[in-house]
Design a protein around this nucleic acid. Structure first.
Lengths: 220, 220
DNA sequence: AATCCTAAGTGAAATTAAACACAAGCTTGC
DNA sequence: GCAAGCTTGTGTTTAATTTCACTTAGGATT
């Protein structure tokens, strides 16, 4: 009998992958990890689709961009699928993260357990407020935003920057992060940021999300 | 000469509005409010598009679902457009919000200024931790999640619930909120929630967002 | 007052994403 | 070892969204 892992035929995707597929892959991963933690070993596209609140065609289509991870007539081995999805998302190595803006939201993200579980390590804290610079949060010291350069010279290159500063300084922070070689930004400031094409930026606007809800409260 | 406001011809949208249009409207609003605060009075679809990092066709199309708010050859009056977009999004009346889960993230959201500025008032705080229940945050008392019912009997119906509890209790909280008549949910727990069709739910998964960035770090 | 200029509004075309149906392949039972 | 049954993987169809090109209309200028 074949080893389970031999069934998995990964492939490099032919064309460009829809952004929504990437989003769903991350959601599937969350679901798979939860199911694995309660002892589930195997899942069908139908069951996974039900958990993710999408339809099963979409689950299979999303996965099939990257390979054949299932067994026909049987389903997907959760352990192997987690490994594959983590590989697809680039989670098989540690990602170094800088957090800029140590206000309420920044501190909440710092204490958020989910990041570390997926391999995201917050390595540096930065702010512009002299009252905060020099203080310690957890085992990290808050540094001046103007010392980013020397930080990476010391600590090595960083992968991702999290921006939790007010809107008026967000573009400056983004520019500073790009200048030290950060290639991914997670932005919580309520302003669209301009970054070079080779930098990926994902924005989360908390107020916008409430406003979207407000719209749908009004319209069914 | 006509009054500016007379130029605005609002209309009820014919078909269903794309979700992404609703998202962009909220983003346009943020931009318009910022420009207004620095004294800008008028903007063209081209300028607004540049600010929002979309193209100008899309700006005009998004707005045209709801009416004719601009003046050909001139552009849009910012003050009037803000009024219209706020009306479209249902922001012309106060929205009552309940926050469930008074951990780090919940407290950060509680102190977030942006909500109140757009008319979202956090009226109630709830948690299941006996150590937190009874304590005060700002001018609000943390209540037991099991006292939701009597809270709305006292304080009146609530519009939106914000869920900042761990994944394992999020569905229970969602059910409880739906049971007291909340029709909109903003969910920060990393798990898809099942709610009735007439309840709108927007989810923000912080880890997922980092994973999306991680994917694109790997693939250009 | 008439003409020119500019930018909004919008039907049509192109693109993109989702839904579907079905063929392919593995397992299990006889 | 063969057939039946189940679920994956995927080519095709359908639907939704974005882009585009062009028409329309207001305002400024002469």
């Amino acid at each position: 009998m074949l080893q389970e892992s031999n069934r998995i035929k990964a492939r490099s995707p032919k064309g460009v992958i829809p952004y929504s597929t990437v989003v769903r892959l991350a959601q599937y991963l969350r679901i798979l990890e939860r199911l694995q933690s309660v002892g589930t070993a195997r899942i069908s596209s139908n069951e996974l689709a039900k958990e993710a609140k999408v339809n099963s065609f979409l689950v299979r289509k999303d996965l099939s961009y990257f390979g054949e991870f299932g067994v026909r007539g049987v389903g997907y081995e959760i352990k192997g699928l987690i490994t594959e999805v983590r590989r697809i998302l680039g989670l098989n190595k540690e990602r170094k993260v800088i957090l800029v803006g140590v206000g309420h939201l920044g501190r909440a993200l710092l204490s958020y357990k989910g990041f570390a579980e997926e391999g995201f390590t917050i390595c540096g804290l930065f702010d512009s407020d002299p009252a905060k610079i020099g203080t310690s949060l957890g085992d990290l010291k808050v540094r001046s935003i103007f010392t980013l350069e020397e930080f990476v010279q010391d600590a090595g290159p960083m992968d991702i920057g999290i921006i939790t500063v007010p809107a008026f300084s967000a573009q400056f922070v983004a520019n500073s992060l790009v200048a030290i070689g950060v290639k991914g930004l997670l932005n919580f400031a309520p302003i669209p940021l301009a970054v070079p094409d080779n930098v990926i930026i994902v924005s989360v606007d908390l107020t916008t999300n409430l406003e979207i809800i407000s719209y749908y409260l009004l319209n069914q």
